[in-house]
Amino acid sequence: MYEFVSGPLVWIAFIVFIGGSLYRIYNMLSSSKKEKVVFPHMSLKHSVASLIHWTIPFNNQYMRQRPIFTIISFAFHICLIIAPIFLLAHVILWDESWNMSWLTIPDAVTDGMTIMVIIGCIFFLYRRLTDPVVQNVTDSSDYLLLAITALPFITGFIAYHQLFAYKAILIIHILAGEIMLIAIPFTRLSHMLFFVFTRAYFGSEQGHVKNSKDW
């Protein structure tokens, strides 16, 4: 089982993730051409300006209005991306299989980051359950996406601390990671891919076409 999930399934997951992502982006770009104004309205300068502006915390009205949300959501997204990439155990796996390695972050830090991701998931779950606006637009898919996101981190945390059933948890952890990778291109987790594009377009339209700003 372990061999399967850590061998061929990893391949499949990464192929689906990368291939699927490329396909989704290609599909989005080509279907955007149907609307003749989209590309002529784009501007690199305003796209970059928008992206930089929106990736700095507290740089917008709503971020300042909602400090807790801002801190948690920034921390969540940063940790979500950084922790798995620079986790020592993951880099070792890459090194063993591909002879590739890169900088790692001390385990204590990645551990903290994992906790941060889990806190983020709990926070988002709490919002989904309590904020009337969010509640009103929440359906099962939103909970499922939250679960897909949380699971690799929860299991990773348990596995790292070897709290119980290490082998089984490890397999579930790998599986959960793979599910998440596969889900990214084909669910609304694809906001990870499209963020750059939607921001770039709105930034361009507000800045380049409408001579204003999108923040």
């Binding site: 599909n27 989005m28 770009l29 080509s30 279907s31 955007s32 051409k33 149907k34 609307e35 989209v38 709503y62 209005q65 909602r66 949300f69 919002r127 904020d131 009337p132 606006v133 969010v134 637009v137 929440t138 939103d142 609304r188 694809s190 906001h191 499209f194 963020f195 594009f197 939607t198 377009y201």
Partner: peptide, 30 residues
């Protein structure tokens, strides 16, 4: 319509942050 509409719909993560922007929402006690 084209990719723009589809991307908007598929990217929306249902976070509800847009609510605070709307004077209709604010004026009707949220």
């Amino acid at each position: 319509t084209g990719g723009r509409l589809q991307t908007y719909v598929n990217t929306c993560i249902h976070c509800g942050l847009c609510a605070e922007a709307c004077q209709w929402y604010l004026s009707h006690d949220k």
